[in-house]
Design a protein around this nucleic acid. Structure first.
Lengths: 195, 195
DNA sequence: CGCCTAGAAGCGACACACTCGCATTAAGGT
DNA sequence: ACCTTAATGCGAGTGTGTCGCTTCTAGGCG
């Protein structure tokens, strides 16, 4: 028994992954998501279609892979001096990015080709990380802070639910309302702190 | 100008729709969702594949159609004598059905093949209707009631978010917690009533 | 330093899902 | 009973996706 199959992140495999991802991003911009096919991506990336089929199995899984990458936040939430201001700003930006047409498309793609829920879990983890940064800052300032879970339930979940399930519009005021309701629940009435 | 193009719900079209839906349900049980193909469904339903392609366009859209039908609640929420009891019972049942493996599969399918968000909106409408029934009952009893929107944001959205984005387990206690937090927000502190 | 092994990519052939244009049938209105 | 219109049936063609085999490279080992 050898110690482990080993993945081999360096070398050829990594090059293939990078060039395939790049090809997807280019082609989505050029021909659109609907016209995209695996052979097209493979040709652009300079690999054979079977390689793509083997590694990703499906166009949807490939798109999901790329979408998760695009949904990764690029910067830390801004530090505006108070928990409330930080959360407001973060929630507004989060809603803007997620509710925009490309954002909705990425969310759909990420959920779509995701048999075991790994990619979806990754998206949720991104939001949790950003919230944790904001909360850690507030703790350092000595402010009372809600649980991360509470903010996910009260702010992130309603936004994502509306994006996915309801056709209606979403604006910054809604994000601020959710934040207000969430922070007003901290350090006060019973039954708001979960788990 | 004739009044309308008209859909023709009765007659042949309706028969085709019914037999195709039945074929999907049968075959999903027999060969599984992964092995399902449009030609297979068409053969079982006694129609030509092109008919299925024309009406539904895609296997995913067909599965989405069937999934929405399965997600339609069959009974009204139970009347247990109080708002709190009704909401607890409803939320627990909702969570049970939605978080179960078949429930998750139906949700995924419903979202998957849904270009314009119609099916997703239908699912959301189902939940809103059930909640409205419970709230209308409570109003008749003279109880103070929260807004439907608040319950969707505080109860439905967190449950669906966790089902879709988080691998963790969901139990009845979580549903009750969400209901507690939602009803405790009614008729009290500022900033909880939305819009 | 060079061989060995195993995992990954290249290649080509085949199956079949999906599209499309045309003919046919049936539903609903007049 | 007729007419309009839309939906279904049918068949051919295209291109996606699968599979077995070969070839190559990365990492382990003597």
């Amino acid at each position: 028994m050898s110690p482990k199959p080993m993945v081999r992140p360096g070398g050829r495999s990594a090059r293939v992954q990078k060039s395939v991802h790049a090809a997807v991003r280019e082609l989505v911009g050029e021909v659109g998501r609907d016209a995209l096919t695996v052979p097209m991506v493979a040709t652009r990336a300079g690999v054979t279609p079977s390689t793509v089929y083997r590694r990703w199995g499906d166009l949807q899984e490939l798109l999901s892979d790329v979408a998760v990458e695009r949904l990764r936040p690029e910067t830390e939430p801004a530090d505006l001096g108070s928990l409330r201001a930080d959360l407001d700003a973060w929630a507004e930006q989060f809603l803007d990015e997620m509710a925009s047409p490309p954002g909705r498309a990425y969310i759909r793609d990420a959920l779509l080709g995701d048999p075991d829920g790994t990619h979806a879990g990754q998206c949720s983890a991104y939001a949790a990380e950003q919230i944790d940064i904001v909360l850690a800052r507030a703790v350092r300032r000595g402010e009372p802070v809600p649980e991360t879970e509470l903010l996910i339930d009260r702010v992130v979940a309603p936004i994502m639910y509306r994006i996915l399930f309801r056709p209606g519009r979403l604006d910054a005021a809604y994000a601020r309302e959710l934040v207000t309701n969430a922070v007003s629940a901290v350090g006060g009435e019973p039954g708001t702190g979960r788990r």
